[in-house]
């Protein structure tokens, strides 16, 4: 039986119940959300039970407008090469203290991708083999992909985008 998205969804719901939710099928990829303490279990389940043998991608997203408990998300893309099925799922993390379990023990490729996510968002991956900055310098204190960090110095006076009707996303409207 081919592994289509309804099968994946049924198996996931049977296994995780209430902790997996918000299934969507957008642009022909199944996406859902899972409780933040279940990410390792979920990836383990996908790898060993459903045959998703490849961790395509790990990355973070910052949602500063959400309530505190859901201000960060870590996004995982998984791929089953035999059935050629892809899924994407998110875990939402607390904005004040974003912490999640590392999956580097299941997929070695997660190692640097989690370091990158830590580097840019400050998301702590517990039990990561070597969690430190990767692309930015070690002395840096900020996490530059968070939305509160403007791309440019806000005090620049020679360049005011407001005159062109542009308001960058990460600055105040006035």
């Amino acid at each position: 039986m081919a592994l289509d998205y309804t099968v994946v969804q049924e198996k996931l719901t049977a296994k995780f119940g209430e902790e997996v939710k918000d299934f969507t099928n957008e642009f022909s990829m199944l996406a859902f959300e899972i409780a933040s303490d279940k990410n390792v279990e979920a990836i383990h389940f996908f790898r060993d039970e459903l045959g998703f043998n490849f961790l395509t991608d790990v990355c973070g997203i910052h949602y500063p407008d959400n309530e505190t408990a859901r201000q960060f998300a870590v996004v995982y893309h998984l791929h089953n090469w035999v059935e050629n099925v892809r899924v994407r799922f998110k875990v939402f993390l607390n904005g004040a203290n974003p912490e999640v379990e590392s999956v580097a023990s299941l997929f070695a490729s997660a190692n640097w991708q989690e370091r990158e996510t830590y580097d840019f968002y400050g998301i702590i991956f517990n039990n990561h083999p070597d969690l430190k900055r990767i692309l930015n310098m070690d002395e840096m204190v900020s996490f530059p992909l968070r939305k509160e960090f403007p791309l440019e110095d806000g005090n620049r006076t020679d360049k005011d985008d407001r005159y062109f009707g542009r308001i960058p996303q990460n600055t105040n409207a006035n």
């Binding site: 840019f120 530059p144 992909l145 960090f149 791309l151 960058p168 996303q169 990460n170």
Partner: peptide, 9 residues
Amino acid sequence: RAFEKIAEN
């Protein structure tokens, strides 16, 4: 070069 940050703008 922070392409992901630049791309958000």
